[in-house]
Design a protein around this nucleic acid. Sequence first.
DNA 1: AGCACGATTAACT
DNA 2: GTTAATCGTGCTC
Length: 216
Amino acid sequence: MTPGTGGIRRARPASRRRLAQASSILHREFYGRPTLMVARDLMGARLVRISNGRRLAGLITETEAYIGENDLGCHATAGRTKRTEVMYGPPGHAYVYFTYGNHWMLNVVTEREDFPAAVLIRAIQPVDGVLIIARRRNHRDTHGPGKLTQALGITSLENGVDLTNSKSNLWIEFGWRVADSAVTRGPRVGLNTVPEPWKSKPWRFLIEGWSLETAD
DNA sequence: AGCACGATTAACT
DNA sequence: GTTAATCGTGCTC
């Protein structure tokens, strides 16, 4: 902006520090635990995305656990491939994959290195940048794994990024503590051709009162 | 090199 | 309730 033009002053980009409440970013130790525990504890956590210098965030309201090569619903049942490689890496990284020819899915890698497991983030409730999110979603909701990635602008570019610091423009912070009485469990969604017992494992978690339109 | 399918969504009837 | 959209991945040939 040249002086004296009387133009509109563009807001100074917010500092990284302001965008990230640094102390509240979930550490690698949070992710390096049993996957079901991580999936449960992500209820109410804040998923944060920096997009064009703007902070977008939503409270996580629904997750699913995918645990190891023996879990026939988990991509890692195919073994260590180019696609599943991230799941074999250290916890706290993003595993992003594409499905149905249209949609990106965001997972967080859990457990110890070399044990392939992850938690699929299935729904968020927007809390920061809600106008931007609403516009990206054409004013439709963000309850659905493909919907929230669209809302936050998450694609294969985010596959493998470290979620435990603010450098990647994608991370998760402590959010609301959700009581056990408010957490519902059920079978995972969309595993139509997956055999039992994996198909019916109650490894889906959701906050009661949210995402109910997709509850079983 | 070709093929079947999918951790889904939106727009239909 | 039904279905098209749309393409990366892993498997088969």
